[in-house]
């Protein structure tokens, strides 16, 4: 492996990991958001009844 190979390997791993982490955060955000809105729509009528 030439020296450019090592450079590309390092940059590849780093940016892949960072992008994956970014996507996983977006995913968690979306999942949490839908769950929250579900809870709110399910929970708010109950609250009004009280």
């Amino acid at each position: 492996m030439g020296s450019w190979g090592f450079v590309l390997l390092a940059y590849g791993i780093v940016w892949l990991a960072l992008v994956l982490y970014f996507l996983s955060l977006k995913n968690r955000m979306r999942k949490a958001g839908t769950k929250l809105s579900q809870l709110r729509s399910a929970g708010s009528p109950g609250k009004h009844e009280k």
Partner: peptide
């Protein structure tokens, strides 16, 4: 993400 999860917990407790 953490804040939303916190709010979910709040909603569930309130529910």
């Amino acid at each position: 993400v953490g804040e939303t999860e916190e709010r979910i917990k709040g909603e569930m407790l309130g529910g």
